[in-house]
Design a protein around this nucleic acid. Structure first.
Lengths: 330, 330
DNA sequence: CTGAAAGCGCTTACAG
DNA sequence: CTGAAAGCGCTTACAG
């Protein structure tokens, strides 16, 4: 039933070794036999068994993992908890396959540090720009975006469903009677930030409540924004923040400003980074499966390298609301 | 570096055969040795090589492919071109792996025709309901939805990006000066229908145009709706239809009503089914990679069966606008 | 340029 | 209940 190398070899009147060489583009095959083998493959509609192939192969795929400089530094120092987890997922996957990988910041990209020798790329981080995507499209080798998606670029990517996560979170609190929920939004051009904000907005609108959104830009003083929130709004009940890292800061600042969390005001995060469980009070947040984001992207790239698929896909991970102590569920 | 069965066997003081038996849950292992092997696996952090495993295994996975009765009939008669393609993708994938599959309509589900013996399921069709999803969640075996997603159910699924597709299509025509674009929307609770409609709406709104949407429900007379459209609107330029099957009918009806396509009025479809290329005039539409939708879903289920992943994901295929003759690009 | 043969890491009849 | 051994379908040094 199943067509194997052996069958092709018989039809083409060569050894299985030669069939394998043709398939893998070895130069050491005469044009004549190459044609014969190609015809046999065609006529039998032969496709190599991917399991056997990967078991037998000795050559390792060379993977380049690129990321914005900020992410690169954050990984090196283990400070950027989110991406540290994502990288664990990537490394776990590649270490079990025949893959070598190396990480580089995008600023090193022009130093042609061996892009040529790579078989494919993983581009990690919300900071991936259109320029970066175009650059890798030009290179012409398979690549997968991790934690970023830019509308209009039909490119393989793995993301988390920020819209759905924030929507579920806010809805949960609206259901128990909360009304004055304020959102702090990061204006950085990151797909997930935008989606989270839209999720908040949708949840509010569905309850006929006017969304109240404060923009934050990298480098700005969060504490100042917080003061403004407290000035502008009388007795806000809940502050939802675009990301755990900053939600944890918000809790601290709120304390400094003399507000009790969660008694007077609740705080909501997003990501479920490790320290969100250990801060005081522990942060109510949305869990994002970070390791899986990494391993899924690694796997997708691996499939691409194996020519398993053709059409680009967007893979979106579902999130999970995590109730902890930074906001009281009435 | 890499841990193999052999290493576990040595530590546990058994043969590799026994290690394999423990991993695969064979009953023919004494409790004592099972524990020893389990400990060895744990201590070495051993994970079987999936390629070797699948190459060596003799047992086939048993897959059940369920679908709404309408889809089932449409497949059998080869009339439902969209799903025929999806099934080709599924079959192509499974036929190359150690998988047996059988197709059943949901109406047969209660006849307990061997759900027990199945290892996993593919649920195919826009008509998959919450009830069906719940039923399969109760069964507790891996399953993946194909061409359907229901918000709130964090379940593995493979869909096409209807929003993005329709948005791109409409935008393309708006750009060249079209203004009076009318949309026929199918009210059936199908994720993609909704998304396509929203894509149309978004494109219109971005140009500050008021969306004009006519609802269609299965069983209704399309021709009547068309007459209403022609009566309500003076000189509509373009009619965008939720799906090729009906867009082709719309072309026919329009001709019957004395309208020239595309000279007087253009028609836009969605899906790129085979007959959309051969109808007169050939239909301008949005290509959905149907075979890949099937093979991607089959692959996802296979990965689930191999316990490769844990978190459920939504896999969304990008679409492509296809310019043909049923609408003039000015 | 080509083929015979070993080997990749598992599973599973088979024999005991 | 357990182990020795064959075999899954490829790739790739090795020898020619």
């Amino acid at each position: 039933m199943k067509i194997r190398t052996k069958d092709v070899a018989r039809i083409a009147n060569v050894s299985t070794a030669t069939v394998s060489r043709v398939i893998n583009g070895s130069p050491n095959v005469s044009e004549k036999t190459r044609q014969r083998v190609l015809m046999a493959i065609e006529s039998l509609n032969y496709k190599p068994d991917i399991f056997a192939k990967n078991l037998a192969k000795k050559r390792f795929y060379e993977i380049g993992i690129g990321c914005p400089d900020e992410v690169f530094r954050g990984i090196e120092s283990s400070e950027y908890q989110f991406y540290v987890k994502v990288f664990e997922g990537i490394q776990d996957y590649f270490s079990r396959k025949k893959c070598n990988y190396s990480i580089f910041p995008f600023s090193m990209l022009n130093e042609r540090d061996g892009v040529e020798e790579k078989d494919g790329f993983l581009l990690v981080g919300g900071g991936i720009s259109e320029g970066i995507i175009k650059k890798f499209q030009d290179i012409g080798k398979p690549f997968v975006l991790v934690d970023q998606f830019i509308s209009g670029y039909d490119v393989d990517c793995v993301i988390s469903n920020g819209f759905d996560g924030e929507y579920k979170l806010i809805k949960r609190f609206l259901k128990t009677g909360y009304r004055k929920i304020i959102y702090i939004h990061n204006v950085a051009k990151h797909f997930s930030y935008e989606q989270r904000m839209i999720g908040y907005r949708r949840a509010m609108r569905e309850k006929s409540l006017e969304p109240v959104i404060y923009d934050f830009a990298e480098g700005q003083d969060l504490k100042l924004i917080l003061k403004r929130i407290l000035d502008d709004n009388k007795e806000p009940e809940l502050i939802a923040v675009f990301e755990d890292r900053y939600a944890i800061d918000v809790i601290e600042y709120l304390k400094e400003l003399g507000k009790k969390v969660p008694e007077e005001i609740g705080v909501l995060g997003f990501d479920n980074i490790i320290s969100s469980a250990s801060c005081q009070p522990p942060l109510t947040t949305v869990h994002v499966p970070k390791e899986e984001m990494g391993s899924l992207a690694a796997k997708r790239l691996f499939d691409l390298l194996n020519k398993e698929d053709i059409s680009p896909v967007q893979i979106s991970l579902f999130t999970k609301v995590l109730m902890r102590k930074s906001a009281k569920l009435r």
